[in-house]
Simulated assay, not measured.
Amino acid sequence: MTLVSERNSADVIRAEAAKLFFDRGYDATSLRQVAAAAGLKVGSLYNHIDSKEHLLLQIMGGIMDDLMDSIRRAAAVEGDAVAKLQAALAAHLRFHAERAREVFIGNTELRSLSNGARDVVIAKRSEYELLLQELIEEAGTAGLADVADARIHVYSFVAQATHVASWFKPGGRMTLDEIVSIYTKFALRELNVPNADARVGHSTS
Rank of each mutant, 00 (worst) to 15 (best):
129 E>A: 09
6 E>A: 15
98 E>K: 15
117 A>S: 15
164 V>G: 01
38 A>Q: 02
189 R>M: 12
143 G>L: 06
5 S>P: 04
103 V>Q: 13
148 A>W: 05
195 N>A: 14
19 K>Y: 03
122 I>Y: 08
193 V>K: 07
63 I>K: 09
163 H>I: 05
38 A>I: 08
33 Q>V: 01
129 E>V: 02
47 N>Y: 13
95 F>S: 04
99 R>D: 05
100 A>I: 04
17 A>C: 08
162 T>S: 13
162 T>G: 15
118 R>Y: 11
199 R>L: 14
40 L>K: 11
6 E>V: 03
70 S>C: 12
84 K>A: 13
38 A>K: 06
100 A>T: 02
81 A>C: 01
134 E>F: 01
155 Y>R: 13
105 I>V: 12
137 E>V: 12
133 Q>V: 00
12 V>Y: 00
83 A>M: 05
178 E>L: 04
35 A>E: 03
9 S>R: 15
120 V>T: 13
148 A>K: 13
178 E>F: 01
83 A>I: 00
89 L>C: 01
27 D>V: 14
122 I>M: 14
159 A>R: 13
176 L>Q: 04
75 A>D: 05
13 I>E: 06
185 K>R: 14
54 H>S: 15
62 G>T: 08
87 A>C: 07
62 G>E: 07
10 A>G: 01
18 A>P: 10
14 R>C: 14
65 D>T: 08
152 I>T: 09
48 H>E: 02
5 S>E: 06
13 I>K: 11
147 V>Q: 08
176 L>P: 05
94 R>K: 09
162 T>E: 14
202 H>Y: 08
68 M>F: 08
92 H>R: 14
154 V>D: 03
111 R>I: 14
176 L>N: 04
167 W>G: 06
159 A>E: 01
120 V>K: 13
199 R>C: 06
26 Y>L: 03
177 D>K: 14
109 E>N: 11
136 I>G: 02
9 S>K: 14
56 L>M: 10
139 A>S: 15
78 E>G: 11
141 T>S: 12
150 A>C: 05
78 E>W: 02
145 A>P: 02
64 M>S: 06
68 M>V: 00
131 L>G: 01
48 H>C: 03
81 A>T: 06
18 A>Q: 08
55 L>Q: 08
179 I>R: 11
64 M>I: 00
171 G>C: 12
9 S>H: 06
89 L>Y: 12
63 I>F: 06
50 D>S: 14
167 W>L: 07
196 A>R: 09
102 E>R: 15
153 H>L: 09
96 H>E: 00
90 A>L: 07
110 L>V: 07
95 F>L: 10
79 G>C: 04
114 S>A: 13
169 K>P: 01
44 S>A: 14
205 S>H: 10
67 L>H: 13
122 I>S: 07
21 F>E: 02
127 E>V: 02
69 D>G: 11
130 L>H: 10
13 I>D: 07
30 S>T: 15
189 R>D: 12
100 A>L: 04
112 S>F: 00
197 D>S: 13
10 A>Y: 05
57 L>M: 08
83 A>N: 13
106 G>R: 10
28 A>H: 12
144 L>P: 00
58 Q>D: 12
146 D>C: 06
151 R>L: 02
147 V>H: 11
86 Q>P: 01
184 T>K: 04
148 A>S: 09
60 M>F: 00
171 G>M: 10
